[in-house]
């Protein structure tokens, strides 16, 4: 993984409050958050807790596209989001939306991957090089000339992600990336995220309800409730804390079992992240 530590964070949200135009209720209230380079962070919380609003603030859709009452500031890689044009932000922060269908604009996969690069005005050879490179990385070369209506949901997701990775962002946001995928495709996506994180050093912020899918690769979980950040820490810290279930999280069985064992006094030497690790810990002499 890329260098981690207490250096300047890649993303820092400082005292952010926001309410949409004509909305009496604040969507975000005094949010403070720091995310370091190379981290994989899960953003969790019930629907309507402000996750999507926060993410739209990070990539600049708020306030550039959606005006409203905006207080505080967000700094990504040294640039203040509200003062940076969308075109530049698009190169720094990639955003994979929930429905991949609505992010594929072109008639062939390779052309769509090049969409963001065309918007940047890159020369053709450079685009060709990057498109081929990304297709290789995500194993979608056989799809290069396919039209989007011939792709499965999982393939569409990979194509949409490829279009984002081709722009070489430092930070990639995934908004409920597995909600349309079957379990096998979902776990393939998780290994892909882990691979991109290790090989390219990309930092990920992922909104996900199926926590057990991502806890094995995540460095931290940030929990939001009613527009505020209410908990923050490693998966084990957050998910074994009794308070986490009050914020509507579905605690993966591994963590509830671990808490249960701890309550009964048999403390395992190491907190497991997967059922396999749990089995190992239990079998250890």
């Amino acid at each position: 993984m890329a260098s981690k530590g207490p250096e300047v964070p890649l993303l820092s949200v400082e005292g952010l409050s926001f309410s949409y135009l004509d909305s009496p209720r604040a969507a975000l209230t005094d949010v403070n958050l720091k995310i370091n380079r190379g981290e994989i962070v899960i953003l969790a919380g019930q629907s309507g807790c402000g996750k999507s609003t926060l993410l739209r603030c990070v990539n600049g859709l708020i306030p550039h596209m959606y005006p409203g009452d905006y207080k505080g500031r967000i700094v990504v890689d040294g640039d203040v989001v509200a003062e940076t044009p969308m075109g530049k932000l698009a190169q720094m922060v990639g955003f994979l939306f929930q429905n991949p269908e609505n992010q594929i604009f072109m008639f062939s996969v390779e052309r769509d991957i090049a969409f963001g690069l065309e918007n940047q005005g890159l020369p053709r050879q450079e685009m060709r090089r990057r498109v081929d490179e990304v297709m290789g990385l995500l194993h979608i070369e056989p799809l290069a000339l396919r039209p989007p209506h011939e792709l499965s949901d999982g393939q569409k997701q990979r194509v949409a992600l490829a279009g984002i990775i081709a722009m070489r962002p430092n930070l990639v946001i995934l908004d409920e990336p597995t909600s349309l995928l079957d379990p096998k495709t979902a776990s393939e996506l998780v290994s892909l995220v882990s691979k991109l994180n290790k090989e390219l050093g990309i930092t990920f912020v992922i909104v996900e309800h199926r926590l057990e899918l991502l806890t094995p690769i995540a460095d931290r979980i940030v929990v939001m409730d009613k527009g505020r950040v209410v908990m923050e820490g490693t998966p084990t810290e957050v998910l074994t804390n009794p308070a986490s279930s009050t914020h509507g999280l579905a605690i993966p069985p591994v963590f509830s079992l671990y808490s249960e064992l701890a309550e009964r006094g048999s403390r395992l030497p190491r907190a497991p992240l997967t059922p396999e690790e749990m089995a190992q810990e239990l079998n250890a002499p």
């Binding site: 739209r56 990539n59 600049g60 859709l61 550039h64 596209m65 044009p85 969308m86 075109g87 530049k88 698009a90 190169q91 922060v93 990639g94 955003f95 939306f97 429905n99 609505n102 992010q103 604009f105 390779e110 052309r111 090049a114 969409f115 963001g116 690069l117 065309e118 918007n119 940047q120 005005g121 890159l122 020369p123 053709r124 685009m127 060709r128 498109v131 279009g163 984002i164 722009m167």
Partner: peptide, 24 residues
């Protein structure tokens, strides 16, 4: 859908340069 499309276009820098290029 058109709202989501607009968000995705913005997020991929549509219109950020007056002279966009083309892969083909």
């Amino acid at each position: 859908r058109s709202g989501e499309l607009a968000e995705a276009m913005e997020s991929r820098g549509y219109g950020s340069t007056p002279k966009p290029t083309s892969l083909y």
